[in-house]
Design a protein around this nucleic acid. Structure first.
Lengths: 236, 236
DNA sequence: TATGCGCAGATCGTATACGATCCCGTTCTT
DNA sequence: AAGAACGGGATCGTATACGATCTGCGCATA
């Protein structure tokens, strides 16, 4: 992977490379939908899997919780986050505001090499789709959005987009409605075209529509899913 | 169905209340400009000051680093973040995009009680200003922005605004140019008026101008850091 | 049979110990 | 005298130990 500049969105690099490994492994597993929302994440168990001590695992879990993909309850432990409908709406509302702006900024800065990288990413995404590797395609689709944010050269946006994409992955796994070849939309390709021609406004428009389309694929209605604690119901 | 959901912006509450105490104390000290950007934050020393073990201090520092107000370098330790000019621009770019939208959303939801709370906050801010307590006024100004984001009821935005406001505080301490009664602008009052009349577009416009005004007060040219002795600042 | 108590087992919270790394002042070499 | 090698002190990185808390299950009891 080419790093154009210091990977701008890279949130707080975990101080230790070993903790970072656990962090990435868990994040990948979550983005991949190998770990479903609500899955418990006991420190010991994770440590055993990755050969790390609880100290490192804990550090990784805390980092993930800061990004909203893991939920930690005191004295109860960590679990894969389980976004509510309200949170889901909030995430996509933010994406709809931020990402078009990011796309416009990226259009003004994308070099040939950037475009090539993006194209390769889309290529990989399509390949994964045709191979039936849906989960992998979703992950790649996410990295595409992150790559654009990195190109935009705005570290704050890059961090936000990273977080939003990760949370979106959880939301999709909970609330996605269309089962068929969902992400088959040509939006990413269209986006690259706009970026390649430095057409900021068009890039923004395409991005906006693309995300609106994503939202359209969601079924944002609360499922029973979680055993909404009795207390909540009684007090509410 | 407006259930008093947990303060929406409250990022991952640190699991332990004791770590949270350290976290808040440090954050307050930073927002207050008692700890200047670049100040080193050795785990032992902080632990001694607050009577906490390194474990807890470390947890607090990591949380702060996730919010971008503390910078951690592997094997080197933590220091108060020292935003570059580029980062500073990026932070305010994001604020300029996000906060008007947040203000508009808040306008649609602000109840009487919310307005009263905001008014009290502005009151306190002015009081602090007149009492010459500039630092306190800046902090209150920040909480005002955060309060609006909480009213908007969008948890994602609330978290972002929290982070942006905190980072802005650092930026201001590094790059603020006008020395005189800076925040004396009536913007906050005007904003409340717009919110009280549910005038979303106007709230957005006021907010946008307000932040543009803030940016205008910045002198975004690189300077260099200054060190300080720690224990004194923390106790003060 | 239904209810409540109490005891494991699992898991987390926290402190602390020990080794690793880095910084910086000192000394040795040329 | 300038530069390199070296060592001491400070600080961090990591593992682990021990106590606290929670959960679930079995048993006593009505």
């Amino acid at each position: 992977m080419l790093k154009t500049e210091r990977s701008s969105g890279e949130r707080s690099a975990l101080r230790s490379p070993r903790a970072a490994t656990v962090y990435r492994a868990l994040l990948d597993a979550i983005l991949d939908h190998r770990l479903a929302p609500g899955t418990r994440l006991p420190e010991d168990e994770i440590g055993a899997v990755y050969g790390a001590s609880r100290t490192l695992v804990r550090s990784a879990l805390e980092a993930l919780s800061h990004e909203g993909v893991v939920h930690i309850e005191p004295n109860r432990g960590a679990m894969v986050a389980h976004p509510t409908v309200h949170e889901a709406r909030s995430v996509f509302e933010a994406r709809q505001l931020i990402e078009p702006r990011v796309a416009a900024a990226a259009a003004g800065r994308a070099g040939e090499k950037d475009i090539a990288t993006l194209a390769a990413s889309v290529e990989a995404e399509h390949a994964a789709l045709h191979a039936g590797e849906h989960r992998r395609a979703i992950v790649l689709s996410g990295t595409f959005h992150i790559a654009i944010a990195d190109i935009a050269g705005q570290p704050v946006y890059a961090g936000f987009v990273r977080e939003l994409v990760a949370r979106s992955s959880l939301i999709i796994s909970l609330y996605w409605r269309r089962r068929e070849a969902t992400c088959g939309s040509p939006a990413h390709g269209t986006l690259i075209a706009a970026l390649a021609t430095q057409d900021g406004p068009r890039a923004a428009a395409v991005m906006e529509e693309h995300i609106a389309d994503l939202v359209g694929g969601l079924d944002l209605v609360e499922r029973e899913a979680r055993p909404a604690s009795l207390a909540d119901l009684l007090v509410g």
